[in-house]
Structures are given as C-alpha cells and as structure tokens.
C-alpha cells in the first residue's frame, strides 16, 4: 500500500496535466468577397490547434494549405499578399475566459482573447467562441474580422475595389482528447 500510493498519485497527477484536446485537420476559412465581383475566399482544412484544461488555446495554420477555387488567385495570395515563402505560418495564441473541461457537457459561449500573428505581425483579437462536446470530441467555433492593413498587406489599386476591407475569418475545429 505504501508503495502503490505514490504511484497512484503520480498517475492522477499525470491525467490532470495531460488533459488536452488537439486537432491537425481543423477547418479555417476566410472571405474577402465584394458583392458583384468574383468571390474571394479560401479554405484551409489542415489547421492545427491545442486546447488545455485552463482554456489556453494555440493554433497554427500553414499558409500554403489554403485552397482557392481559382488557382491563379491562390498563387497571387501566396506570392504577393502573404509572402508565404518567407512567412509560412499564421499562429494564434490565446485564452478562453472561464473555461474548464467540467463545463463541457453543454454548448457554451466564451470570450476568446489572444494574439493573431500573420506575416510576423501580431494583432490582438477579442471575440466570442462557441464550444460544445459531441461524441467525445470538442467542437470549437469562432468568427472575427481583420483588415489587410493590420498585417501590412498591400493591395494594388487595380483590384482594390474587388477585395473587401473587412476580411472575415471563421474557424471550426473538432478536437480529440490526447
């Protein structure tokens, strides 16, 4: 008994520490479409994210993982707007205020606070996130908007009217227990 107790404690401790949910195939989309022009939107189906018991959240997107319907648009996005050879990732680090795994049984809204880094430039994001639990999987959804100027993305005047100034980013991740 004396020997098993420390082991048991260690085991319990580990299960607390190791409680986190991860995904490597999260879906992130953005829309910068202006009505009457060709839609400008892309989807990334390989976003990575980790959420732990304290509500800390970290996400990483590979810019080259964005898919556009028009291949030329994808090429311009990577080469001219995002400079993805130099800045290959976009990251988000933040916190879900008041989050804990115990509350997971119901769908709940949380305030999400964090830093979004694109092209090496950081921007503070405050938004609302919806979290629910379905079939042992944690579903994380949020939407917020940014502008091209936030990340020093220059848009040539010739296409200026075709790209919306508010770019809407939506995220829908299904995270599994790790």
């Amino acid at each position: 008994m004396k020997k098993t107790l420390p082991f048991l404690l260690l085991f319990c401790l580990q299960s607390i520490v190791a409680q986190k949910y991860i995904t490597r195939s999260g879906i992130s989309t953005f829309k910068a479409s202006v009505t009457a022009f060709e839609p400008i939107e892309a989807i990334n189906k390989s976003s990575s994210a980790v959420i732990n018991n304290k509500g800390d959240i970290a996400a990483l997107l590979l810019i080259k993982g964005f898919h556009f319907n028009v291949a030329l648009m994808q090429e311009h996005f990577n080469e001219n707007y995002m400079k993805s050879d130099q800045f290959s990732t976009a990251t988000f680090k933040g916190k879900l205020i008041g989050f804990s795994f115990e509350k997971l049984s119901t769908t709940k809204k949380y305030t999400l606070n964090g830093i979004l880094t694109i092209k090496g430039i950081a921007k503070k994001i405050i938004t609302e996130a919806v979290i629910s639990m379905r079939n042992e999987k944690l579903n994380f959804r949020t939407t917020f908007s940014v502008t091209p100027q936030d990340f020093e993305i220059k848009i040539p005047t010739i296409v200026r009217k075709k790209i919306a100034n508010d770019i809407i980013i939506s995220v829908n991740y299904e995270l599994a227990k790790k």
């Binding site: 991860i22 490597r24 390989s46 990575s48 994210a49 980790v50 970290a58 996400a59 990483l60 590979l62 810019i63 080259k64 993982g65 290959s88 990732t89 990251t91």
Partner: peptide, 10 residues
C-alpha cells in the same frame, strides 16, 4: 508538401 508545423512538430 505544405509546410512544417512547429506547434505539433510535424
């Protein structure tokens, strides 16, 4: 190849 993910180290 779309890149190296240094969050999950993959």
């Amino acid at each position: 190849m779309i890149g190296y993910d240094d969050l999950l180290e993959e």
